[in-house]
Every structure is written in C-alpha cells, then in structure tokens.
Design a protein around this nucleic acid. Structure first.
Lengths: 201, 201
DNA sequence: GGCATATTATGACATTTGTCATTAATAATC
DNA sequence: GATTATTAATGACAAATGTCATAATATGCC
C-alpha cells in the first residue's frame, strides 16, 4: 500500500483528488492540507511515500516544501501539481530533485499514471511543459529595485515611495530609471507588466 | 437517474469531478467541456437535468451560458461553481435564475449535497458568499473611458493612446482625468488597481 | 589591493502627466 | 422642447516623471 499526502489550497480539487486517489486500491491518502505550513509539518510527521504538492499555496509554496524535505533527507517521492508552466518554477523543481512535475491542465488519469511511474523510480515531466513553457528572464533587479517596484505596484508616487522607504525623492527616481533600463521600458506600467509576466513581484 | 453536464476549464478538476459524480449511483455525467462555446452547444443538444458551470472559461463564461439557457427556456437546473465571491457575478447569477452558486473553496461533499437540494427545487447559495463577498462598485466609467483604461493597462503613453484610438492627446488626457475623478484616484496605476479589483477591465 | 556592484545622493533638464476652464456636437431621457 | 450624459477639442498651467552626469560609501570577490 502506497501512502500519499496531498497539499492543494483549492478545497474542491483537494477533496475531489483525495477521494479519487483513495479509490485506487493500492493507494491511500493519509492526509491533506490547504496551506503549505500545515502540509510540511504533517508530511514530516506522517512520512507518506508520496507528496503531491501545489505550488501557489498560503504560507509556504510547494517548491519550498520540496526544498525542505530534500534538506532533511526525508525518503519521499515528490510530485508538483500546478497551473503554471513557468520556467523558473520548473528550474526550482529540478534543483529540489522533484520526481514529477504535472500541470492541472492534464486529466486525473495522468496523475494516477504519474504516481505509478514515480513509484517505479522514473522521473516524469509533463510533455506540455516542453511546448508551453513560459520562459521568464532571470531577474536582473536588485533587492532595492524590487522593493521600489512593489511600491510602484501599489500606485505610490515617487515622493510617497521616498517617504515610505526613507530615501530622497531623487534617489527613488534614479532607481526607477534603472528599473526601466533593465526592463527595456520607459514607464511604470510597462515595467510592472514585464515584472508580473516574469513573476519578479 | 439524474443527468449532468459539467463545464470547467481546468482539466484536472473537470475529470476529477466527473469521475466522482459518476460514482454516485443516482447521478450520471453525460458530457463535459473545457470551454463555454462547446458547453452551450452540447447542453442544448444533450438536454441534461443539471448543468454545473464554471464562470471564467474561454470563449463564453458560465454566466453567459446560463443567460442563454434561460432565454431559450430550456428546462434545466444550473449550478455555478466558481473561485470568485464577486458581487457582480452573484447578481448576474441571480438575474439568470441560477439554482445554486457554490465556491470552489468548498469540499466536493457540498457539491453533491447542493445537487440533491437543487433537484428538490431548492435554491442554494454558498454561505461563505454572504460573509466573503467582494462588493465591487458598479462601473461608473463610460465605454470610451474603459477603452482608454485598457490602453493604459498596456503601458501606453497619452500620445500613443491618442494615435491608436484617433483622438487628440489633450482629449485622451481629459478622459484619463475623468477616470481619476470617478475612481477617486490621482494616478494611472491607482486607477488600474481599482478597476482590476472591481473587474471593470 | 583593486574591481565590480549596490546603495545613496544632488542638480539640471526636457517631457509627460494631471487639472481646469471653456466650447460644441450628438444622442438619450424626461 | 429642455436637460443631461457622452464624445471630442483647445489652451494654459503646475506638478510629477524620466534622464543624465557626477560622486561618495560600502561590500563582496578575484
């Protein structure tokens, strides 16, 4: 009997998947969570054979959970299940030696098949990934620039940002200018659009 | 035997739910789709007792499907299943005499219970709706203003917008000024944030 | 030790943005 | 028929934004 832990923040999908997986007579879902923190604690506690992890969850992402589990060298197969074919996510998954990376854009049969394959020691990456991958540039912005871009995102003016982060108005404007040249843009909104597309903010 | 049609664009949830519903011995899923257009056609064709519809789908939203089905007076129970507790969605659902409105933030048991209740003629609205509803103001912007706001969203400058929509630069700036006063803001990014929150763009 | 990068700052400048008053032609509504 | 809302425009002005040159300090790296 293979034990499974499922972390997925959308309750409907969470309960539907756990019910379905439980129906397979060689699989048993021994726990589920809708946030990352609970998931990590319980996975360490319950020691399932397999963890199926969503990426975007409250408190802790699935990728961070995977990283932690590899650090403490827990013997577990990890399947990442996500909406996003984002290159940066994919790279993080590879570097955490995840056993499979599957898109929610696939049917449940694929998930069950993936579970079987992973159990046999195979590493599975969804074929759609190769074609649909959204290759985001690696972030060229410094910490300060990212901070300022986040304030821009809230709609603050240069002076408001200056006050909030304790810088001079001129300095803030210089940083913004630098953000523009690094993103190849000339306005706040363009820069925000690029940063959002690449998940820099 | 109750026949069900399921329209949900996320394949994983789509297949998980149809498998689960099919397990109930008084329910039968007679078709599913991942886009609204196909869904509407097949619902008219297959005449299921119940349609479970996601709102945000390609080509046609679940709410538009509901509206169409009411116009042609097809005898069908409609359950809207969505992530969003958006007041505007809710109102549209009510005006299309939808039989239930359920959040994906609920477990599958709730969905099955809702199906039973709807069959008995009850109208069900998720209790979380009442507490979590995101009350978006009704859109005070004119068509022209919305058009211009969409261009702003792309990061265009006043002049670029002027060229694109064949207006003078000054006129564009006047419209933007008007958008600000209607949204109670003083900058493009603030206005965009408000418009996004309220789903005006 | 030296080089590159990040952080912070100032001053100056052109351009853009946002505001306001004012005008005018169409619809749409009462 | 009068009133209101929408669309469109101009001119003028203050404020904000974006660009550039220049410079100082701090930190990490070869």
């Amino acid at each position: 009997m293979t034990t499974i832990y499922l972390a997925e923040d959308q309750e409907m999908l969470n309960s539907a998947l756990s019910a379905l997986l439980d129906l397979e007579d060689d699989l048993q879902v021994i726990g589920t969570a809708t946030d990352g923190e609970t998931a990590l604690k319980q996975i360490i506690d319950l020691k399932p054979n397999i963890a199926i992890l969503d990426i975007e969850m409250p408190k802790l992402t699935g990728l961070e959970i995977a990283k932690q589990l590899r650090i403490i060298k827990q013997d577990i197969k990890i399947i990442i299940l996500t909406t996003f074919a984002q290159a940066s996510y994919f790279e993080q998954a590879v570097s955490s030696r995840v056993n499979a990376y599957l898109l929610k854009d696939s049917p449940t049969d694929d998930l069950i098949e993936t579970i079987q394959n992973v159990l046999e020691g195979k590493t599975i990456f969804a074929p759609e990934l190769v074609t649909n991958i959204i290759s985001s540039e690696k972030n060229p912005l410094t910490k300060r620039e990212i901070d300022i871009l986040k304030e821009i995102n809230l709609g603050l003016s240069s002076q408001e940002i200056a006050q909030k982060v304790f810088l001079s108005d001129g300095t803030v404007r210089n940083y913004i200018s630098s953000i523009f040249s690094k993103t190849g843009t000339h306005s706040r909104i363009e820069a925000l659009n690029i940063a959002r597309k690449n998940k820099w903010i």
